[in-house]
Nucleic acid binder design. Structure first.
Lengths: 336, 336
DNA sequence: CAGCGTAATCGAAGCGCTTCGATATTTCCC
DNA sequence: GGGAAATATCGAAGCGCTTCGATTACGCTG
């Protein structure tokens, strides 16, 4: 293993000079810098991560805690994880992958061992038990998702309330009068993950503001459960012409079922999804959707974490405004 | 931050004794052990990861390199990543997430900085350029996937050749005489990821052994492309009654298309998928499938990595035998 | 030209841990 | 009961880096 001392010898300088070349914390003459950099290249030097962490009290590692098996749609998690990893490298940070099932113990371990400089938490529950530990250990952290009490915390999330409202507006603008929200599975609501409830709130508020008849139903996302949910909705409200789907797993079943029941999309029935663009694009017909800005959330989380590490703690809640893209699955309600 | 010295003071022993309690590398009296453990608990001590890495030359971190955006089915990647992370914790290791687009530079960085003790690489190509770097830096590594030359390497993968053959056998046993393999997208073959080609080889060999007429077609996995592929197959070989699907994205479209064209599954046409069990189970009808043992591969990779770290290097290639589960999408060919 | 500020570099301390003798204590066997 | 072997513990060195204060060299200014 190449050490800083060898680089120093090769370049004819002292180890501290090499360190300063690398960290740019003191001025170095152009000439010296060049010699040192040449030596680094020639020897293929990489600073020893542990030694650096020990001396500088910074590991250059961000810990990312993801749900192990989740009700959340897997591609979204994956996209966030990849965005975090990619963005982290822009700041010369690496990413440590933790599973949520390590729970508070995981947070303690990371905070206590100095393994990571900051944490990014996904799948945040309304009353998440990791939060008190974060406070107590004063670990720099960013939450992806919104807990009930955000005091002193830095959070990023899609504005699901506005999302629900935006979907209603779109359908209302097209002339739909009876609409339905096909929500997440019961487990998601019970675990008190806020996003599903916030969507529903926005949906119902806006529906009543605009005088629409609106129903909300939970849905497991399997073919069978989607069929059941759809049947019940159409039985209770046969005039329903607009659907908003939050559970991405239910999208494909829903489209199949509507087709089977002779309802053409978008001619007879409009469908608006809340899902990643990728999913909306590979459906047939391509779906009008509010996209889940996974990449943006991941990148934002990293930037927030870094600014906490540089600049001190400025708690902030970032709600990303929904972006509804009109595609082929929604249209004006038939004149009849 | 709590240090080992504070723990030692609290327990009335020397720091080295605390270290030996933790590492179990020397015998410690029962009494001392208890006092030290009490002190650790009382103070909430966690060894400083950097200091430990520096002194012991072991970071207790495994680096996992995953494809950034891939042709591989995302849930499989995610399941492997989670299995790796979970299994790693069993060995007191953490997992560092790297993206494949860091390429050879990433491997060099990790090898050079001592950030990780070993690497696990996913999405291995036949002639993967990360492999020479692995050799050159003699980094302990496990590949998930099979390169062309496995000399000196440790690899894990599903036995895709046997998988192709097993699917053929199943359909042949049911009396099907004309079958088709709907493969991965062109990009997968062009990138020389071996698994798709191996499946095809096994498929064709066994088909000819058993005297079946067999065609293989690449497929992008979108609704449109699947429709095109299916149409061509049925045009060229109208008697095709058995389908094997490797591209998971094509499964749902295929089922819809078969239904639309009036071919009942499994009464008229049998479908066998190569996909995670989860996907097979949530389709309708539930699919006869060879499962992709994502979790097993992840766990196995970690165990191999650990045994390399403990016991020295014993290169090995593990091909997991395919497990075909019969469900509702395959049946004997109609008597007619 | 004395005195001073600035730029560039060095040397050494120290981060928290592991590990290698060395030492102290106990056990055991002839 | 004395010495060897085994057991339990300690002290100190050192892992590779960062960082602080000190030092040197140099160009200014009054």
């Amino acid at each position: 293993m190449v050490t800083i001392a060898e680089v120093a010898r090769q370049a004819g300088v002292s180890p501290s000079t090499v360190s300063y070349v690398l960290s740019r914390k003191r001025s170095i003459s152009e000439d010296t810098r060049r010699r040192v950099e040449a030596a680094i290249d020639a020897l293929g030097y990489h600073p020893h991560a542990g030694a650096r962490a020990l001396a500088s009290n910074r590991s250059n590692i961000l810990a990312l805690m993801v749900p192990l098996r989740s009700d959340m749609y897997v591609p979204v998690i994956m996209e966030i994880a990849m965005a975090v990893t990619t963005e982290a490298r822009e700041f010369d940070q690496d990413v440590l992958l933790l599973t949520k099932d390590e729970g508070t113990g995981g947070v303690r371990r990371i905070a206590g061992s100095g393994l990571a400089d900051a944490m990014i938490l996904m799948d945040v529950e309304l009353d998440d038990d990791r939060i008190p530990v974060l406070r107590e250990t004063s670990t720099p952290a960013v939450l992806i998702g919104l807990p009930a009490d955000t005091a002193g915390l830095t959070c990023v999330d899609l504005d699901f309330d506005a999302t629900g409202a935006a979907c209603v507006d779109h359908l209302a603008d097209l002339g739909h009068r009876e609409i339905a929200l096909i929500g997440e599975s019961e487990g998601v609501y019970r675990r008190h993950t806020g996003f599903a409830a916030r969507t529903m709130t926005g949906f119902q508020r806006r529906a009543s503001e605009r005088g629409l008849r609106a129903v909300h139903r939970m849905c497991e996302g399997t073919y069978e459960s989607t069929a059941g949910v759809l049947a019940r909705i159409l039985e209770e409200r046969p005039g329903t012409t607009g659907f908003i789907v939050q559970n991405e797993a239910a999208i494909t079943p829903l489209l199949s079922l509507l087709r089977l029941s002779g309802r053409a999309v978008p001619e007879d029935t409009s469908v608006v999804a809340i899902c990643p663009d990728q999913v909306a694009l590979q459906s047939s017909p391509r779906l009008t959707s509010v996209s889940i800005p996974a990449e943006e959330m991941g990148r934002h989380a990293v930037r927030q974490a870094m600014s906490q590490l540089e600049g001190g703690h400025h708690p902030s809640v970032t709600l990303i405004p929904p972006l509804l893209t009109v595609r082929e699955s929604s249209a004006a309600v038939p004149a009849s």
